[in-house]
Design a binder for these strands. Structure first.
Lengths: 246, 246
DNA sequence: TAGTGGTCTAGACCACTAG
DNA sequence: TAGTGGTCTAGACCACTAT
C-alpha cells in the first residue's frame, strides 16, 4: 500500500503526482508498463474512477500511452520543440498602449503568377483577391502586409474597409482557419518595400510567410514584412509537461 | 427534453457536441449562462458525471468558463494568436537528411556585463558559464549559438562535449525548463558574426533571443543567429478549436 | 477466457457564491 | 439558505487484446 502526499489538492491530482514522481525518479522508465487501474486502486486506496481520471489526464498531456485491452505505458519523450506566438498586430500595438492605424495601398482582383498559383494549390490559374496594407504604430510604419485571398472561400473580401476592421479579424470571423503554415526569414528590404516602410533600401527586415487553410483548401497566402529595427516577434510560453505540441 | 445525436460516439462527446452546437449556432452567445449541470441532466437524460466531464473538457479547451457557486458561461473568444515552432537545429537538419556538425568556439566561465546580469535577474553580478558554437548543415555554417548558463542550476555545463551532444539535449535532460521567452528580430551581421558564419558583414540574419526558466530562476540566456539566406524558421500548425494555447 | 482500459450511473459530500 | 460546480465512490457494462 503506497501512500499519497498529505496536501490539500484533490485525490486525482495526488495520483497524477504519484505517477509523475515514479516517472521522474526513473523508477518507471520509458515504455515501462504501469500497474493496471485495478492494481493502482488497491495500492493507493482510491476508487477506480479517480485513478482513471488521473491516468486519462496524464495521457492527454502526453505523459502516458494507453491501449485498451493491453495496458498503460510511460510515453517516450517527444521530439522537443518550443513555440513562438504570432499575434494580431493591431491588438499587439494597442496592448502596448500605442496608436494603431492601417493604410490600404491596394485592394483588387489579381491574376497570380505561377508561383502563387502553386502556393494556393490551384489546379489551374484563376484570379485571386489581393491586398497590400501598411500598419503604423504611433504613425511610424512597422509592418507591410500583403495578402492573397481565395475568392471561393472569402467572396466578400474586396468589399471590406480594412482601415476600420483588420484583415486579420475579418478573415478570422468570415473564414475560420483550420491550419496555418509559417516561415520566418530575414531579408534585405527591396526598393518598393523600403519606400512603403520609410526605411533604407537593404535594411534588414523580418519576412513572415503565412498560408492558412480552411478545411482542405488554401484560404490565404500572405507575406508580412516587419521592419527589423522597429519591431520584433516575441512571446513567453509555458511548455506543458511533456513538451506536447497542440 | 433535448435529443442527442444518434452516433457511435460516447455520451460525453455527444454532450460536448450539443453544447458546441448551441454556441456555434448563436443560440448561446458569448457570456451566455449555460443551464446548470442538474438542468442539463434533466434536459439530456444523462448522469451528472457525464455532463460534468463534457463541461470540464470544454472548459479546459477554452470554450467555457466555470465559476463554482455561480455557473457556467460561454467563454469570450480568445485574443487570436498563432504559434511558430522552434525545433532543435540538429534534429531539424537530420530530419532533412542532411549532415549536422557543431564546432565549439568557446566554453568558459564568464563575468557578465550588467545587461546580462539583468537578463538573469541576479541580485548582484556573479560568474556564469558561456558557450559559443557554430552549427553546420552539410558543412555550411547556418547558425551561431551563444549561451549563457546559470551555474547554480547547471553545474556540470563546462564538462560536456557539445560536439557530441547538443547543448539543447543536454540542457533539456539536465535542467527541464518550465518557461521560455522568445524574441525574434532581424539584424545585420556584425564583423565577428560574419566571420564565424562565413557571410558578408551586414548580411541580414535572424536573431532569436531566448531565455529559459527552471522554476522561478532563469536557467539560460541565449542569442541564436541564423543566416537569413540559408535558413528560415518554419512550422505548420493546427489551431485547436478555441484558439487555446497549450 | 481473463485482464485491460472506456464509459456511465446514482448517490453522496464538499466548497463556494449569492440572496 | 439554496443553488452552483468540484470531487469521490461503488458498482456496472462494454470493447478490446492476448493467450
Amino acid at each position: 500500500m503506497e501512500t499519497l502526499p498529505d496536501t490539500a489538492s484533490p485525490l486525482y491530482e495526488k495520483v497524477k503526482d504519484y505517477v509523475l514522481g515514479n516517472i521522474g525518479s526513473g523508477r518507471w522508465p520509458r515504455n515501462q508498463k504501469l500497474p493496471s487501474e485495478n492494481e493502482l486502486v488497491s495500492a493507493l486506496g482510491v476508487s477506480r474512477m479517480t485513478v482513471h481520471r488521473a491516468l486519462r489526464e496524464l495521457t492527454s498531456q502526453g505523459h502516458l500511452l494507453r491501449v485498451q485491452g493491453v495496458g498503460t505505458f510511460v510515453a517516450p519523450p517527444k521530439p522537443q520543440s518550443t513555440l513562438i506566438e504570432v499575434n494580431n498586430i493591431a491588438n499587439e500595438i494597442r496592448a502596448r498602449g500605442n496608436s494603431h492605424r492601417a493604410k490600404v495601398l491596394v485592394l483588387e482582383t489579381f491574376a497570380p503568377e505561377p508561383q502563387l498559383v502553386a502556393a494556393f494549390e490551384f489546379p489551374a490559374a484563376q484570379p485571386v483577391f489581393h491586398s497590400l496594407l501598411v500598419h503604423f504604430e504611433n504613425e511610424v510604419p512597422v509592418q507591410l502586409e500583403e495578402r492573397f485571398v481565395n475568392p471561393g472561400l472569402v467572396p466578400g473580401y474586396l468589399d471590406q474597409n480594412f482601415e476600420a476592421t483588420t484583415t486579420y479579424d475579418y478573415l478570422q470571423q468570415s473564414t475560420p482557419m483550420t491550419e496555418v503554415e509559417h516561415i520566418i526569414s530575414a531579408i534585405h528590404a527591396d526598393e518598393e518595400t523600403a519606400r512603403h516602410l520609410a526605411i533604407e533600401t537593404g535594411e534588414a527586415c523580418l519576412l513572415l510567410h503565412r498560408r492558412t487553410w480552411s478545411g482542405a483548401k488554401v484560404a490565404t497566402v500572405n507575406r508580412i514584412i516587419y521592419v527589423g529595427s522597429r519591431y520584433s516577434l516575441g512571446s513567453r510560453y509555458t511548455p506543458n509537461a511533456a513538451g506536447t505540441h497542440p
